[in-house]
Computed example of a mutant assay.
Amino acid sequence: MVTVSIQSSPNELPKVIGTSPNMKPKVLVVAHGVRSLSPSLSEQIDANYHIINYDCDNTDECKRRMMPGGLYSEIDAIVETGWKKSAPFLNHNLFSGDMVQAYPSSVKIVSCSGHGYDAADIPTLTARGVWYCNTPDTCTTSVANTAIFLILDVHRYFGFAEHCVRIDAWSASRALGSVAIDPIGQTLGVVGLGSIGLATAQKAATALEMRVLYYGPRRKPDAEAKIPGGAL
């Protein structure tokens, strides 16, 4: 087994301290192929970790490989990149309760590049002494921007107009003049004023001058104060 000490610089990978200078933690990487790593980062990873690329046809095969003597029987960590965004491992949930129960005792940390943790069985991971890590702020802005695009689309029917252009029926889109409206002054309802909900509300209130209402288990006065015009 190994322990990891965190460096002060966020641009450096953790240094590994093992039972011998040559020991590297074995990391099972489930690559969803969204974005490739830079050469410099790949070099850092190769220098500090022994990477095993996941290539199972299904999770049952993964469980077999985690059994004593199997290819994954001595892994220290599991990392999923691009968190459930592309094939071929889209439906392979390695953080579910039954999968966690199959982990070898060497696994101490699992990580995914995603916002939430709904796909992970946190109680079972905790009971096994396994740390769960995610990246909660990495896609806040991009998701909020997408939400703004969708708000504009449902008000102005951009998707329908674009479709008319593609099928050479531009004249059909002229009917939108009687139904399309501008979102300015409209009310935006946000369910859950978390980081993405707040970012979307801020953009909608600032750029589109929308009124914001939100629903959640409790009021968030600090978040309300960050929205131009406030929120209810």
Rank of each mutant, 00 (worst) to 15 (best):
Q202W: 02
P14I: 03
L41N: 09
I227W: 05
I75W: 02
Y54A: 06
R35M: 13
N11T: 10
G216Q: 11
P25W: 00
L150M: 13
G194V: 12
N91C: 08
Y117L: 10
H163K: 15
E12L: 15
A172H: 11
A77E: 04
M99P: 04
D153C: 11
H163S: 10
R128I: 00
S173E: 00
L41D: 03
I148Y: 07
L208V: 13
V130E: 05
L28C: 07
Y103T: 10
L94S: 08
G70L: 10
N53Q: 14
L213H: 12
Q186E: 12
K84V: 04
S9M: 02
C164Q: 11
R174W: 01
V16Y: 01
T200C: 13
L152P: 01
N134P: 01
G33H: 11
K220Q: 15
I6R: 07
R166L: 09
S113G: 04
S8R: 13
V27I: 15
S36L: 10
Y103M: 09
K63L: 09
I181M: 07
P123W: 05
V179C: 14
E80D: 03
P88N: 09
I78K: 11
G229T: 06
M210Q: 04
D55W: 01
S171R: 11
D121K: 04
R156D: 07
L188D: 04
A119L: 13
A147G: 10
K226I: 01
A77H: 09
C62S: 14
M99R: 08
C139W: 06
D153P: 01
A144W: 01
A147N: 12
R166G: 03
G185H: 05
K26G: 03
K108I: 00
F160S: 09
E43F: 02
Y214E: 02
N91Y: 09
P221G: 07
V34M: 10
A169V: 02
M99Y: 02
A144N: 06
V2F: 03
E61C: 09
S20W: 04
A161V: 15
I78R: 01
D76K: 02
D60H: 08
H115S: 11
E209M: 07
T146G: 11
P228H: 07
